[in-house]
């Protein structure tokens, strides 16, 4: 069951998108999300879609892979789509079944909403598919750096995040393994009442927690024995550097923002 989680998985590659500075990608993704909420009308959505499509094509991530990452929220998409379809009132009645009437406006709203959610998911997935978790936390640390002046523990936070990210796959594997081991002794995680199922989780959760604490302890020892003492005076092996492509990407992001704002006025 855990093997189905692909959300936030990194697919190594060497395309233009992969090579962009993670800070650029992070900023662009945030910008894209904000602009997505400004978009209104068919033309601004078309521009948004085109922009993301170009990025996806450049990254050589298969569309099927990208869309399968959106699978976990298909249910939400369908529900919001249906709600908007049936509850939006308008002038142009399309058809009417029993007491439910569907208007052209409803169809439009639902369509735009679904598109918006899909674009939102796909742009964040594109970020995590083309940027390793470590690069991401590096970028986050760099961007939050100004907060250090306010005594905000930026380094500690990003260290915690990169450790957590590093251990998620390990924990998933561990969960899988313990689950298999208990299943081999006849444990049943899939049937029974809610109460029974909750109880059936104990043979999984206890070894999982014991293991996680053991790991944390070992990691702390390993870090201390290599003289880790927080962010003070710590340098990076891989310095982040902005290249021409990064500036170009940022400019195109700005252009996208302007275009959408203008189209919104016009449309």
């Amino acid at each position: 069951m855990f093997k189905d989680i692909t959300m936030g998985q990194y697919f190594p590659g060497n395309t233009l998108i992969h090579r962009l500075d993670p800070r650029t990608k992070l900023v662009l993704t945030l910008l894209y999300i904000i602009v997505l909420f400004l978009a209104k009308g068919i033309w601004s959505y078309a521009v948004m879609l085109a922009f993301l499509s170009v990025c996806v094509i450049l990254s050589r991530i298969k569309l099927s892979v990208l869309l399968s990452g959106a699978k976990p929220i298909v249910f939400i998409i369908i529900i919001t789509g249906i709600l908007n379809l049936f509850y939006t009132k308008g002038e142009h009645l399309l058809f009417r079944v029993w007491r439910i009437s569907v208007y052209l406006e409803g169809l439009q709203t639902a369509g735009f909403l679904i598109l918006r959610i899909l674009l939102l998911i796909c742009c964040t997935l594109l970020l995590t598919y083309t940027t390793s978790p470590l690069q991401l936390t590096d970028a986050m640390e760099a961007l939050l750096n100004p907060l250090k002046k306010l005594r905000f523990p930026v380094h500690e936070l990003s260290m915690m995040m990169s450790i957590a990210l590093r251990f998620i796959p390990t924990l998933i594997k561990e969960t899988d393994k313990i689950m298999s081991a208990q299943k081999a002794r006849g444990a049943d995680f899939e049937t029974g009442s809610l109460r029974q199922r909750a109880k059936a989780l104990l043979p999984l959760l206890i070894p999982l927690f014991v293991g996680a604490f053991r790991r944390a302890d070992e990691l702390a020892t390993a870090m201390e024995s290599r003289c880790y003492h927080g962010g003070e005076g710590r340098t990076k092996m891989k310095q982040l550097r902005m290249a021409a492509a990064d500036w170009a990407a940022l400019v195109s992001g700005a252009a996208l923002t302007v275009a959408v704002v203008l189209l919104r006025r016009a449309g």
């Binding site: 393994k177 313990i178 081999a184 002794r185 006849g186 293991g211």
Partner: peptide
Amino acid sequence: TRFKVGLVFQYPEYQLFEETVYRDIAFG
């Protein structure tokens, strides 16, 4: 078949979870 074909995983000690040795052996 799970009961007829017993499988001991690598590092099986990490799957122990009961309060006592007896109850852990009795789980299967």
